[in-house]
Every structure is written in C-alpha cells, then in structure tokens.
Design a protein around this nucleic acid. Structure first.
Lengths: 182, 182
DNA sequence: GAAACTAAGTCAACATGGTTGACGTATCTT
DNA sequence: AAGATACGTCAACCATGTTGACTTAGTTTC
C-alpha cells in the first residue's frame, strides 16, 4: 500500500551532486526508506515539541499562548511590518490574528503606527516591554538551539540547515528562505 | 536584555570533539549567535509547518485532524501498545485521547484487544483500513522527507539527525531516542 | 469628484484539540 | 477485604484556528 516509487524514479530536477552515496545507502535498506524516513519524521515531531515548550512556559506567566509568541517573534524580527505582511507570514486569517494582536496592543507589548505614505497601513513594532517579553521567550529557546549546535558540531549544523530548507514547500521555499535570511 | 552568556560559559558536559571550529564561527559573529540562532529557529518553524500540512489534507477527507494522525502514526508504529503507553508518547491527557481514539475505534480504524495476562489493559492496533489510512497520510510526508534527504545528501542527513536529537529535552532524550529507534 | 478598490477592524458562529476535576467499573495486587 | 491501577466518561472551560458578513478609513482610477 505504501508507494515508494518516488525513490526509484527521481524527477529531473532531483539531480544533484552527492547523490550516489545516498542512493547506495537508500537501496541497501530492506524496507526501502520506510524505516529511516519514519525515524526522521518522529525526530522532527519530538524535537519540535520540546523546542516549543520553552517559550510556552514563559508566556503562561503573562497569560499568553503560542499564537502570541509567534506574533512577538515575527514583529520583533520585522520591525514596522504591516498587518497584511504579518498575516502572510503567519498564514492565518485576519480574525485569528486580531484576537492575539488586539490583546498585545492593549497590554502595551506591540505598538501600531499609521503609515506615512499610505495612512491605511498599520506598522507594527515591539515596545520596550514587548522586546523584553520577546527576549524572555526566545532566550531559553536560543539557549537550547545554541547548545544543540555546539554539541552537534558545525558540519551537522550545515546539514540541519540543508535538510530543513529542502523540507519546505517548493512553491514558497524561496520566499520563506528570503524571509529567514533577511 | 538578551542573555547570551550561555555562549561564553559552556557547562562542563558540553565538551565534545569538533568544538573548536564552531567556537570560532560563533565568536566571529558581531551579534553573537543571535542572528544565526534565530534563523535556525525560524527554519524549524516553517519546515514543521509545511511538513505537517501533508497529512492534514488527507485526513480532512475523512473528517479527521492532526490528533487522529498522531494516534494513527504511533499505534501503527507500536502495535499492541496500551492506552497508558500511548498517552506517555503523546503527552496528552486521557480525556483528550478519548475523543479521537473513540472515534477511530467506532470508525473501524483502530482495534482494541484486552490483555491476556492483565485484562484491564487495552492493546491498540490498526485494522486493515487503519493501516491503509495511515499509509495514505504518511506517503506524501515520507515522499517529502525522502526528497529532502535526496537533495541534501547523506552527510546533511546525518547532521539533521544529530542536531534534532540534541534539541530534545535532556531528561527524556534517551527514552525518546529509544522509542524512535525501536 | 464619484466609483472602486484596499487595509484594517469587528461581530458572530463554529471546529478542533488541549486542559482540569470528578466519578464509575473492572481487574489486579497485597 | 482493601487498595491500587487501567480505562472510560461526563462536564466545563480555554486557546486558536476557521468562514462569512459588515464597517470605516484611505487610496486609486476613470
């Protein structure tokens, strides 16, 4: 029932250097791919779970959740971002955002300033306390990642980057990578 | 406000081969670590998001969500697992599980059989149609990962594994890794 | 200058998937 | 017989997503 044909018939744009070794490894499996892919999938699941638990704890102290954290993160990362652009990054609806963003503005973590050129736009940025909250959230997370990078070594970090960027949706990969590297 | 002191004062058990290069790279940053760590964090966020979108689509066709997928996955992976053990893996409450598991048993995707030795236990396993549904969900996801591995190359895959396993919570890492590698 | 479009906010209703707390029942252990 | 354990269930609640409809303000276009 499991279709593993993709492994045997790479599409043209799959061609890449450093493929031969992997093909050999791949073909050496008796359950071709299935087992190792499953492990890779589970690893991502568990790593992401633990990884998101850090900010959750901090945010709980101010009555916020993950949604608030994402706003905090991406507004901090993209000062003066507009609501539209934030929605595109978060990939949620305006109404969903309104709930969390409204609270954060009321609570004084996020500031809104109308655009100079186009006064319909609201440019979002973190206030002082917003920046402090963001730092409190991302500190343990960054520490976790720094520690993992340290222990895994630089080649492993490079591999992590490569694999994760290849996991992105093809249509949006370039946009996402540009956003990340900004 | 951001405390990056962890980067300067590695704890004793951080010692590891292949550390020097990374230290150099790390110290070479003017915003030490912050920028690259942030990129690594965002990459994980986006990759996970795209990665979970595959099964979501399949499950939507039978009126299921992500929670059902996780059950499907871990029951498929651990045949005859007990409810208790499944709860430990999923890290959710019995009541949360009951909602999705109940539906899946009713719909004939999961079978429950009382334990032979201890008849209080319910051993869970996928029925034929459960296995089919699981395959339908994991196929596109496995294809995505296989493709990413293929394009990133074997060394990158190894790095991906190392970094992700280091990202796990320290207390539970060994347990999780044992579960994954089972 | 009127019409049309756009950015943002808002109200309402609903789905999913988590939580806590309390309780029941069958079964095993001591 | 008493107590612990495995499982199930009811009820209430919360966070975060959805769709659809509508308003207001500002910009663009004809």
């Amino acid at each position: 029932m499991v279709d593993v044909s993709f492994s045997r018939s790479p599409t043209p744009q799959d061609d890449d250097p450093a493929t031969a070794d992997w093909e050999a490894w791949f073909d050496g499996q008796n359950h071709p791919a299935g087992r190792d892919l499953r492990q890779a999938i589970e690893m991502l699941f568990f790593a992401y779970r633990d990884f998101t638990s850090d900010p959750d704890q901090v945010l709980a102290t101010v009555g916020y959740g993950r949604a608030h954290h994402r706003v905090l993160h991406f507004v901090g990362r993209n000062p003066d971002i507009t609501v539209q652009d934030l929605l595109k990054i978060l990939n949620i609806t305006k109404q969903s955002l309104a709930r969390v963003l409204g609270a954060m503005v009321r609570d004084g973590y996020v500031a809104q300033t109308p655009g100079a050129r186009d006064r319909r736009l609201r440019h979002l940025s973190l206030t002082e306390s917003g920046q402090a909250l963001e730092a409190a959230c991302s500190d343990p997370q960054q520490e976790r990642v720094a520690r993992a990078f340290h222990r895994a070594g630089p080649e492993a970090v490079e591999g992590y980057r490569r694999v994760l960027s290849e996991l992105l949706d093809r249509e949006s990969r370039d946009t996402i990578l540009a956003q990340i590297r900004k």
